[in-house]
């Protein structure tokens, strides 16, 4: 369906082991321009490992990973000019102010220091953070930190975005802005890799959903396609079904019983 030249990311036979444990099992995946991929799966399914490999944080794996048509093993720096990343754990040099941090990361992408700084300031203003631009990030709230991370990942206008729980801590209004930004970016042909545990959001924003379970892709398609195939109403239910999780009723009942035990 898609043209070969629009292929942004291509993974073939990706396998990763930690010791004896198989984390990723022969993953094949092609991602095309403009797609918003909702990348979901239970804890420990191998989501972050995949993302780490694509970001070049994890060096030892079997299989091929090509980004923008080039193997990331052979050329492990240049593709990074065109990607952006929001880490799940808010890893950030929080002793710096937002100004210092953002101009620094901007420069790492080769932006001019002054340009990076003005650009960052304008973006901060949109998120209503202009007053704290020169305060240390360590004094920020969770949501404010998250906004800084978002800005930092987008400052150099990347073509491929990796977002790991990007709306963690954001208020509803900021989430609204953020969702719109993603939609706009995808319209312009940017590709977004979105991992999250919040199914409602993934369901709404993704043009394609990938469900990973025990190191394998168990579902791949738009939300509509998944719904037809699995005859379930919401992504949450599809998720439960495909990951084989049925005991939630029993478990929740047991939980409540234990809570109410020994009450005097």
């Amino acid at each position: 369906m898609e043209k070969q030249s629009d292929k942004v990311l291509s993974i073939k036979g990706l396998t990763k082991r930690y010791g004896d444990k198989l984390v990723l099992d022969e993953i094949d995946l092609d991602v095309y321009k403009g797609q918003i991929i909702g990348y979901i799966g239970p804890n420990g399914a191998g989501k972050s490992t995949t993302v780490k490999i694509m970001l070049g944080l994890e060096g030892s794996y079997e299989g091929d990973v090509e980004i923008f048509g080039e193997s990331i093993k052979e050329n492990n720096v240049d593709y990074k000019y065109r990607i952006g990343y929001v880490p799940e754990m808010a890893d950030i040099y929080d002793n710096l102010s937002a100004r210092e941090y953002l101009s620094f990361t901007g420069e790492l992408y080769g932006l001019e220091p002054e340009k990076a700084e003005t650009k960052a300031r304008e973006l901060m203003k949109i998120f209503d953070l202009e007053e704290v631009y020169d305060s240390r990030i360590s004094s920020y709230s969770k949501g404010m930190k998250q906004k800084v991370l978002l800005i930092s990942s987008l400052l150099h206008d990347p073509d491929l975005l990796f977002l790991d729980e990007p709306i963690n801590g954001l208020d509803a209004n900021s989430v609204m802005i953020f969702k719109e930004i993603l939609a706009k970016l995808s319209e312009q042909g940017k590709t977004i890799f979105y991992s999250s545990h919040i199914m409602e959001v993934v369901e709404k924003i993704s043009s394609r959903i990938l469900l990973l379970n025990e190191g394998k892709i168990v579902a791949d398609g738009s939300f509509e396609e998944l719904r037809q195939k699995n005859k379930e109403g919401s992504l949450e239910e599809i998720f439960n079904q495909l990951t084989g999780f049925k005991e939630y009723k029993d478990l929740s009942e047991e939980f409540v019983q234990i809570v109410q035990r020994d009450k005097t």
Partner: peptide, 11 residues
């Protein structure tokens, strides 16, 4: 933090 902050950038 160096891993996530610097490792994911084109350095």
């Amino acid at each position: 933090r160096d891993q996530t902050i610097l490792g994911t950038r084109p350095v």
